[in-house]
Simulated scan of single mutants.
Amino acid sequence: MKEKLSEFIQSRFASDLLPQRDINTNLLHFSIKKESISSVIRTLKDHPEFAFSFLNDLTSIDWLGKREPRFEVIYLLRSPKNNHFRLQLRVPVGEGEEVPSISDLFPAANWPEREVFDLMGIPFSGHPRMERLIMPDNFVGHPLRKDYPLEGPGQDYLIEDLLTIHVKEDIAG
């Protein structure tokens, strides 16, 4: 299965593939151009032999100072038809760039895409509701980026706005 799928992807999507980087994984993995990710995933999902019909995970990595472009969005697909065979697709993304949403292909991608946007600042074009999921709407920054300050940027405004309390008065009282 692994060899057949690898040959299929390399022949069918030759112009969509990016050079592979050495990564420590036992999964079959490919780096894909961001503008091609939706069509690649659609083909793999709809293909009768491979049938990657389950989105296992969607997450991101910040490679600050180690790689360019800085970010990668990672898709982990499974094929229940083929004994849950797993495939990892990696999409390099630069600062300020968007990745096409796959929430139309996998409704389960809705929240993970919003989580990646909220915590890493990577937007997904075509997403039906691209807004923060975890952090308050007025939160400044993206806390899972490697350059986000450990102590935060001073978030007292969040407490005052959301809970309508004054931090100094509560501590003194």
Rank of each mutant, 00 (worst) to 15 (best):
D16M: 05
D16I: 00
K34V: 09
N26T: 07
I9V: 09
P19W: 10
L28V: 04
P19G: 09
E35T: 08
I41S: 06
K34Q: 15
S38W: 11
S31E: 14
S39P: 03
T25K: 12
Q10E: 15
F30W: 02
A14F: 07
R12K: 14
R21E: 12
V40N: 08
F8V: 01
S31P: 02
F30Q: 00
N26Y: 03
I32T: 01
E7I: 14
S15W: 06
Q10T: 12
S31L: 12
L18A: 11
E7R: 15
E7Q: 14
Q20R: 13
I23D: 01
I32P: 01
I37P: 06
Q20L: 13
H29D: 11
S38Y: 13
N24T: 12
Q20I: 07
E35G: 06
S38V: 13
I23T: 03
A14D: 07
D22Y: 14
S15M: 03
L18K: 07
E7W: 05
Q20T: 09
Q20S: 12
I23M: 06
R21K: 15
T25I: 08
D22L: 15
N24V: 14
S36Y: 08
E35C: 00
Q20G: 02
V40R: 10
L27N: 11
L17F: 05
R12T: 12
L28G: 04
H29C: 11
K34W: 09
S39N: 08
H29W: 07
I9W: 00
S31N: 10
F30K: 05
S39C: 03
N24D: 15
S36R: 12
L28I: 07
T25S: 15
F8E: 02
F30Y: 06
F13W: 02
V40F: 09
Q20C: 07
F13C: 00
I41V: 10
R12S: 10
K33W: 06
F8G: 00
R21H: 13
F13V: 00
I41F: 05
Q20P: 01
Q10P: 02
I9D: 00
